[in-house]
């Protein structure tokens, strides 16, 4: 692995900016947009249930961090992209108070729409140079999982806005049918590329063109979110969206807020070597979709090398595959009421 890194990446690659990293980032639950309208008691109950598992995660990381106390940060993602939610001035204090009452501290609040909006290219707020949205950065780095028989001459067939983990059923990849030659009749099943005996085929919608332009799917935005947490996204080598302190007066409009809001001054860094999500099993299909996409994101090797070397400096071992740095706890987080868009 080491030799490989040397061969493909010059060790001191000045192209990529580095990002402060915690040991672990913990996401304290998911909510459907409808749930965000619930009262404080609903959230206190939610955070109490999450708190049990959060404590378990903390103690697990105490055991495996060689030097001192692990740096652990917590975060929440607010779904303001598909639905209108209460304004930040109402919702943020409600969430913070509820978490506090449940004995938890939220360090960062992130708005989901921020994963779809262009991020200013510099952390310098004066700069007007527009960068790409985190979702667009993920899309640019998608590298399709090739079905057997794929060469550089015939790249994997792409269906616009979709990504799958194998071959779709029955000749949908536009293969030419020769005239005067019998068509091969019948249905051919889809196939997962790395199937063990049987296939679990997944076809994920990434985006769709709507009347107001491109509408990213929840799975795609969540992938960008997870990759932001792992600190592996860069725009032309620059870090994407550094956390900004919470303003004294919260605006009425979520989109007036920076992508990542630091609500706790003493918080460990937002991005981390590893990320854990604690949420209801109801969100498992979304996370499955996220993992199908993330399996096919080719993270810049220079970024990977940079993070690996820093982990080694802290005597930490990191899985070489980015997807293996994600952990989940699917637990009962209380009554989840909504059935928002998936």
């Amino acid at each position: 692995m080491k030799a490989h890194a040397e061969f493909f990446e010059s060790a001191a690659d000045a192209r990529v900016e580095s990002v402060p990293l915690a040991n672990l980032s913990v996401e304290l639950g998911h909510f459907y947009a409808e749930d965000l309208r619930e009262d404080e008691d609903f959230f206190v109950d939610h955070f109490r249930r999450i708190g049990i598992w959060y404590a378990a995660a903390r103690s697990a990381y105490h055991g495996v961090t060689p030097k001192g106390r692990p740096r652990i940060s917590t975060c929440l993602l607010v779904d303001d992209y598909f639905d209108t939610v209460e304004p930040p001035a109402v919702l943020v204090p409600k969430l913070l108070t509820a978490a506090h009452k449940a004995g938890l501290e939220i360090d960062y609040v992130v708005r989901e729409s921020g994963c779809a909006d262009p991020v200013p290219a510099h952390s310098d707020p004066e700069s007007t140079e527009a960068g790409l949205s985190p979702a667009a950065l993920v899309e640019a780095r998608l590298l399709d999982d090739p079905p057997p028989g794929t060469t550089g001459a015939r790249p994997p067939a792409r269906e616009t806005g979709w990504l799958c983990n194998g071959q779709r059923s029955g000749g949908s990849n536009g293969t030419g049918q020769e005239a005067m030659k019998r068509a091969t009749a019948g249905w051919s099943p889809p196939a997962e590329n790395a199937a063990v005996n049987h296939s679990i085929f997944a076809d994920i919608e990434l985006w769709r063109e709507g009347p107001d332009g491109r509408l990213w799917s929840c799975a795609m935005l969540a992938t960008a979110w997870q990759l932001l947490r792992l600190g592996v996204l860069r725009d032309k080598g620059r870090r994407v969206a550094s956390p900004q302190p919470i303003p004294a007066d919260l605006p009425d409009n979520w989109r007036a807020l920076p992508l990542i809001l630091r609500v706790n001054e003493r918080a460990a860094p937002f991005s981390a070597y590893r990320a854990m999500t604690i949420c209801s099993p109801k969100f498992q299909p979304i996370e499955n979709a996220v993992r199908t996409i993330m399996q096919q994101v080719a993270v810049d090797p220079a970024v990977l090398t940079q993070i690996t070397e820093r982990a080694e400096g802290e005597q930490l071992t990191l899985p070489s595959k980015v997807i293996d740095r994600l952990e989940y706890l699917f637990v009962d987080t209380g009554p989840v009421r909504g059935a928002g868009p998936g």
């Binding site: 692995m1 590298l143 790395a194 096919q296 994101v297 595959k321």
Partner: peptide, 21 residues
């Protein structure tokens, strides 16, 4: 870069993306 590996099974795609090229 060609690298022979023992065993005849293809691995998860993320494995190959961790060693681009």
């Amino acid at each position: 870069r060609l690298e022979p590996v023992p065993g005849g099974h293809r691995r998860a795609w993320s494995h190959y993306l961790a060693r681009l090229g």
